[in-house]
Amino acid sequence: MLTDCQVAVIGGDARQLEVIRKLSQLDANLILIGFDQLDHGFTGASKTEITEVNFSRLDFIILPVNATGPHGEIDTIFSNKKIQLTVQQLQQTPQHCCVFSGITNDYLDGIIKESGRKHIQLFERDDVAIYNSIPTAEGTIMMVIQNTDTTIHQSTTAILGFGRVGVSVARAFAALGAKVKVGARRPEHLARISEMGLTPFHLDQLEKEMTTTDVCINTIPSLILTSKVISKLPPHTLIIDLASKPGGTDFKYAEKRGIKALLAPGLPGIVAPKTAGQILGKVLAQLMLDERRQRDER
């Protein structure tokens, strides 16, 4: 249980509601910031303004999945008020205070370093990424159906990258009858792609493989679909880029060529916020319990 733990949940989207629900079940004392327009309440939770928070009592701070903006601003869909996290606020917290977010940025890295607090990026964890790959795959299927006039079945679908998301997306499209080919660089990935009954190709051969592609799904967070590569795509090809912003696609060149290219990071929070929130809540609860136990053992 998280009885007597002081947890500040600052901003976020519908996923945070499941996080709040899970932590409430564990008897945490929750301070909700940026939730003034939320209709229903949670046991053990109180809504407040960030200026009224006693940071010196906080054990944990939960930020939105996308952390903060470049100047510390925090997004929330449950309030119109401006919220900002500063280094001064973090410095007021106890030394053991731990900060959670999905990803990070230069601003957050800076204030975390200056304050000396612990920061855990949830999306860097294998368990979160693997769980999240399920709604990501479903959302990708939805986007392909919405933006093409042919079936996924028998389509030639190229998936770039064979990480945690790439594996799930490749498996899902193969199950729907697509002719799936997967581009990777590591020999063990190419071997596993072949073992799964899919067609592997080395990313050095990307330009050649693009000439017969109906749908291209990128999971690599660096520019891989360059103008040179896109020039080899058939005009009807659909590009879905699942990599974090700014993605791995030359979107301007794709538009110039008349090829539809869609950047789609954060699909779990869009297509299945309840499930995505439950994933985060489960992992956060375990991490907090571990942090509390380690603190008690010191």
Rank of each mutant, 00 (worst) to 15 (best):
L32F: 03
E52Q: 12
S79A: 05
K232G: 06
D126N: 12
M288H: 05
T48E: 13
F100C: 01
F123A: 06
Q146N: 13
T249W: 03
I279P: 10
G197R: 03
T48S: 12
A175K: 14
F251Q: 11
N147R: 05
L284V: 03
I83M: 01
I220L: 15
Y253P: 01
T148H: 05
G183A: 03
E73L: 08
Q146W: 06
T86R: 00
G69Y: 03
H236I: 08
F173N: 03
G116W: 04
H202T: 12
I141Q: 02
T151C: 12
R117K: 03
G183V: 10
A276C: 04
V7N: 13
M142S: 13
G161W: 01
G69D: 11
E195Y: 14
T151L: 15
N147K: 07
P273Y: 05
Q286M: 13
S115P: 05
R57Y: 10
I33N: 09
M1P: 05
Q205Y: 11
R15I: 01
V283C: 09
I103L: 15
K179D: 03
P265A: 00
I259E: 13
Q6I: 05
F201L: 12
C98Q: 14
T275S: 05
L198C: 12
M143D: 03
G44E: 02
K81V: 07
K245Q: 15
L160C: 08
L263G: 02
D75M: 08
G41W: 11
K47C: 07
R298I: 14
V165C: 15
I61R: 01
Y107D: 00
V53M: 01
P135V: 03
N218I: 14
R185A: 01
S101R: 01
L198E: 10
Q95Y: 06
T140L: 13
P273K: 02
A243F: 08
G248C: 14
L263R: 04
E52D: 15
M288Q: 07
A8G: 09
I50V: 07
H189D: 05
D290A: 13
H96R: 08
E255P: 03
T237A: 05
K181N: 09
D75A: 15
T199K: 07
A254E: 04
S231C: 09
L267C: 01
E52R: 14
P265K: 02
V99E: 02
K260F: 09
V19Y: 10
L85H: 01
L160G: 04
R171Y: 08
T199M: 02
A129I: 11
I120M: 04
Q278T: 00
T48V: 06
T68Q: 00
N132Q: 14
T213K: 04
K22C: 13
G258Y: 02
D214N: 12
P187W: 10
F55K: 14
S79L: 03
Q88W: 07
L238V: 06
G177W: 10
E207M: 09
L289E: 15
L284G: 06
A8L: 15
S24V: 08
R295T: 10
D126Y: 12
Q95C: 12
F123D: 08
T3I: 10
M196C: 08
N147P: 07
P64D: 03
E209R: 09
S56L: 09
